[in-house]
Nucleic acid binder design. Sequence first.
DNA 1: TCCGAATGTTGACGGCGCTCACATTAGACG
DNA 2: CGTCTAATGTGAGCGCCGTCAACATTCGGA
Lengths: 193, 193
Amino acid sequence: MAASKTAYHHGDLPAACLGAALELLEEGGETALSLRAVARRAGVSPAAPYRHYADREALISAVAAVGYRELAERLAAAHPAPSTPAQLADVAVAYVRFALERPALFRVMFSEPCDRDNDERAGAIAAVQLYLREIVARCFPASDPEALAPAIWALVHGLAFLFLDGKLEAPTPAAVAERVTAAVEAMLGATAS
Amino acid sequence: MAASKTAYHHGDLPAACLGAALELLEEGGETALSLRAVARRAGVSPAAPYRHYADREALISAVAAVGYRELAERLAAAHPAPSTPAQLADVAVAYVRFALERPALFRVMFSEPCDRDNDERAGAIAAVQLYLREIVARCFPASDPEALAPAIWALVHGLAFLFLDGKLEAPTPAAVAERVTAAVEAMLGATAS
DNA sequence: TCCGAATGTTGACGGCGCTCACATTAGACG
DNA sequence: CGTCTAATGTGAGCGCCGTCAACATTCGGA
C-alpha cells in the first residue's frame, strides 16, 4: 500500500515476511515454510529476506515469537487468573485447543532446538513459567510451586503433543476438552483435596 | 561383507539404509537424515533406496519403529513391572533420559504427523498405551486407568519434550532425574495417598 | 539353460538455503 | 536543493535435496 509507488523498496519487508510465513504455515504446514516461498508471497526476490533475517532459523524464531504472544492471549482469554483446579483445567483445555487449531505454529514454537541467543523466545518461555507459577500458587497454596508448576506444564504440554501427533485419539474438539479435563482432574483433583 | 563379490546387488540394502539412517541421526541430527546421505553411506546410488522405501517418510517411519523398540527396552530395563509410585518414577526417568540421550531419534518418533497407514508405528503406540495401563492398574488400583494412564504418559512425555527443547533447564542428567521424580511425585504421591 | 522379476545405476527436473556482485533508492548532511 | 553513503532489493549461481524414468545387471525358478 504505502510502498506501491516505487516497487523497488518494499516498505516493510520484515513484517511482510512474517505475515507471509504465518500464512504459509497455516496453509501448508511446516514444510511449506521456505524462505523462497515467503519471498515469492511478499513479491520480492529470493534473496531479499536475507537483508532482514540472517537465515531460515531467524525467520522461524520470529514466527515462534508471534505464536507465544497468541498463545498467551488465548490462555488469558480462557481465564485471566485461575484459582481453582477447575479453572486451571479450562486453561489447560485452551492450551491444547490452541495446539490442535494451529498445529504447525505450535510445532514451530516448541519443536525446535530453540537457540538460546534469541532473547525474545527465552523471554516468552520465562513468562510462561512465571505465569504458571502464579496460577499454581493460587490454586494449590499448600504445595511447592517449584515442583508442581513444571509438572503441570509438562502434563498439559504432553497432552497437546500426544493429541497433535495422533498418539492420543479424540474425534471432536469437545472430546479433546473432555479428555484434557479428565486428565488434569485425575491428577490435580487428588492433589487439591 | 557377504555381498562384496558382486558389488552390484548390495545384499541387504533395506537394513543397510536403516543402519545408515540411525547413524546419521545420531551424528548430525534430524537435518542430516537425507535419503541421499543414506544412499552414500550405504555405498549405493541416490535412487537405490527407492526400491525399498517409497519415500523419505517411509524410511523415517522405519527409523521410528526401531526407536519404539529401543525405548520399550529401556523402560523395561528401568523396571520390568512397576507397582509403586516410586518405581513408576524410575520408569519416567528412563523415558526422559532416553529422550535426552537420543534427541534426534526421539523427535523422529514423536514429532511427525505419524501417518496412520503405518501399521508398525500404530502398533508400537498401542503397545505403549497397554503397557502404561497395566502399570497404572498396579500402582493405583483405586483409580480409573482410562483417565490416569494418558495423564501420566502426557506428564512424562511433556517433561521429555520440555527438557529436550530447553524449556526446562537442568545442568546434569542427575539433575534431570531429580526434577522428573519431583514432578511425578508432586502429582502422583498425592494421588496414591 | 533361459527368462522374468528384483535390484541397482544414470541422468535429469524442480525446489531449496545461502552467497556474492551489482542495481536502486532513501535520507542525512552540506 | 544537490550529493553521497548506507540501506535495501536483484540476479546469477553454488551445492544440496527428493523424486522419477529409462536403462543395466543379476538372482532364482521353470
